Simulated assay, not measured.
Amino acid sequence: MRKKEMFYKILAYFGGALSFFLVGFLFAYIFYKGYKVINFKFLTDVPQGMILGQEGGIAPAIIGSFLSTFIACLVAGFFGIFTSIYLVFYEENEKRIELIENIIKCIGGIPSIVFGLFGYTLFTLYSGLGKSIISGGLTLGIMIFPVVEIRMEKVFREVEKEILNASYSMGISKFYTIYKIVIPICLRDIVATILLGYNYAIGATAPIMFCMAVINSPISFTISKPGMSLSYHLYTLMTQGISMEMAYGTAFVLISLIVFVTVVFQFLLRKKGENIE
């Protein structure tokens, strides 16, 4: 038994070390390939050059990515939270729960390119939104909804039954119990789940390719117009062979944004938890 324990412990440490090494190597390699172009102008300027993208910066792509993923997180977070609350606390028919869960899992298995075609048809063409950031954000929101909902449902099911029963026994309504007890208890996991969806959405290319992305745009915060995206800009730089240095610089900024947002939110949640305690 002790040998088995030691074996699994070694495997766990090895897996952790390997993951840390791979992430570190990925960051170092991409930074090494693109560090020459990463400067203040690169982060605040628009694409320029004889072949667009060879010079200048990626500011419109950063703004477009933030706006589209923000909309996506709002959409997926809103529907993910309320769907999971309904399935966990209100729906009592097991067959109906199973049916809804299977449908959500099937949605989660749809390729991102299909979401792009769906979003283009529904939002860009028939809803009158046109090719715009809001069309891209809504499409991304539908794409990441299953990721958010399935994880949130798991979080809500892990809330201790004793806490819920104690609240109900005092005559407190189910809605008030969820709003005042369940949500605060699960807040850190809820934010972490939405961040997982954010990380998934900001790197998606196919959905926004059809619904919002353009090769060049001015620096703008208007969501009713098309915009650039980091993932699509990186795709263009790579596939068209415009500039590998600019491509690696864009990739490094994309990864850094994911890490930065995740670290900031985790820090804020930790501070909030300390204040509550």
Rank of each mutant, 00 (worst) to 15 (best):
Ile163Lys: 07
Ser68Leu: 01
Met212Leu: 04
Gly77Pro: 00
Phe79Asp: 04
Glu101Cys: 11
Asn275Asp: 13
Met1Asp: 04
Gly108Val: 03
Pro218Glu: 08
Ile181Phe: 10
Ser132Ile: 02
Leu140Val: 02
Thr250Tyr: 05
Leu138Tyr: 02
Glu245Ser: 07
Lys180Trp: 10
Glu94Thr: 09
Ser167Gln: 09
Pro218Val: 06
Phe70Pro: 00
Tyr90Asn: 02
Ile38Pro: 00
Tyr86Leu: 13
Ile38Gly: 00
Ala72Asp: 05
Asn199Gln: 12
Thr239Cys: 05
Lys41Leu: 15
Phe221Thr: 12
Val88Leu: 13
Leu11Cys: 15
Glu245Ala: 06
Phe145Ala: 02
Pro146Ala: 04
Val155Glu: 05
Met238Ile: 14
Lys33Gly: 08
Val191Thr: 12
Arg151Val: 14
Glu91Arg: 08
Ile190Ser: 06
Pro111Asn: 10
Ile103Arg: 10
Leu140Arg: 02
Pro226Gln: 07
Gly34Leu: 00
Ile190Leu: 05
Met152Leu: 15
Gly15Met: 15
Ser127Leu: 10
Gly56Leu: 11
Arg188Gln: 12
Phe14Gln: 10
Phe20Pro: 08
Thr69Arg: 00
Leu99Met: 12
Gly273His: 11
Ile208His: 04
Tyr35Cys: 05
Ile190Val: 04
Val46Lys: 08
Ile258Ser: 15
Ser220His: 06
Pro146Ile: 06
Gly273Trp: 12
Val264Arg: 07
Val159Ser: 08
Met238Lys: 09
Leu138Ser: 09
Ala12Phe: 14
Glu274Met: 11
